[in-house]
Simulated scan of single mutants.
Amino acid sequence: MRQPLPPSDVNHKCVGLKSLSRVFNAYFQFSRAGWYFLLLIWCALEKTSMEDLSEKLFFSSDQLFVFLGRMSIEEITCGVNLLLYHSFKLLWKRAVQYCPDIVDSPVLLAIDTTDKRYYGVDNEYVHRTLKMEGRKKKRVSVLRYASISIVAKNFKFTLGVTPKKRDEPLDRVVERLLKLVPEELSVFAVLMDKGFYLSSVMKTVDKQGYKYIIPVKQYGSMSLLYRLLELTGVSHWKYTMRGGESLEYTYDVYLEDLGIEAYCGFATNLPVTRMSFTILAEAYTNRWNIENGYKETKEYTIKTNSRNHGYRTLVFGLSHLILNLHGIMKKTHQKAKITVNQMKNMLKQFLERILQLPKRPDNMISKHLKVAW
Rank of each mutant, 00 (worst) to 15 (best):
P182A: 00
E183V: 02
E184I: 02
S186L: 07
F188M: 01
F188D: 01
F188C: 01
V190Q: 00
L191Y: 05
M192Q: 09
M192R: 07
D193L: 07
D193C: 10
D193R: 07
D193I: 05
Y197H: 04
Y197S: 03
S199I: 00
S199Q: 07
S199F: 04
S199N: 09
S199W: 02
S199D: 06
S200T: 11
S200W: 02
S200V: 01
S200I: 02
V201L: 10
V201Q: 05
V201R: 05
V201H: 07
K203Q: 15
K203A: 15
V205P: 12
V205R: 06
V205L: 10
D206E: 14
D206Q: 12
K207G: 09
Q208C: 12
Q208I: 05
Q208E: 14
G209P: 05
G209N: 04
Y212E: 01
I213P: 10
I214F: 13
V216S: 04
K217D: 03
K217C: 06
Q218T: 13
Q218N: 15
G220A: 15
G220F: 14
S223T: 09
S223F: 09
S223D: 12
L224V: 09
L224S: 11
Y226L: 05
Y226P: 02
R227Q: 12
L228M: 12
E230C: 15
L231Q: 14
L231F: 14
L231T: 12
T232W: 15
V234N: 13
S235Y: 08
H236I: 03
H236M: 08
W237H: 00
W237D: 00
Y239A: 10
T240E: 02
M241Y: 13
R242I: 08
R242G: 07
G244L: 06
E245A: 04
E245K: 08
S246T: 08
S246C: 04
L247K: 13
L247T: 14
E248D: 06
E248Y: 07
Y249Q: 04
Y249P: 03
T250N: 05
T250F: 07
T250V: 04
D252N: 04
V253Q: 07
Y254L: 07
L255K: 03
E256P: 03
E256D: 11
D257Q: 05
L258K: 10
G259D: 14
I260F: 13
E261Q: 12
E261F: 10
E261I: 03
Y263I: 09
G265A: 08
G265V: 02
G265W: 09
F266E: 02
F266I: 01
F266T: 00
A267P: 01
T268I: 14
T268N: 11
N269H: 10
N269Q: 10
L270Q: 13
T273C: 12
R274C: 03
M275D: 05
T278P: 10
T278R: 13
T278M: 11
I279E: 07
I279G: 01
I279D: 01
I279W: 06
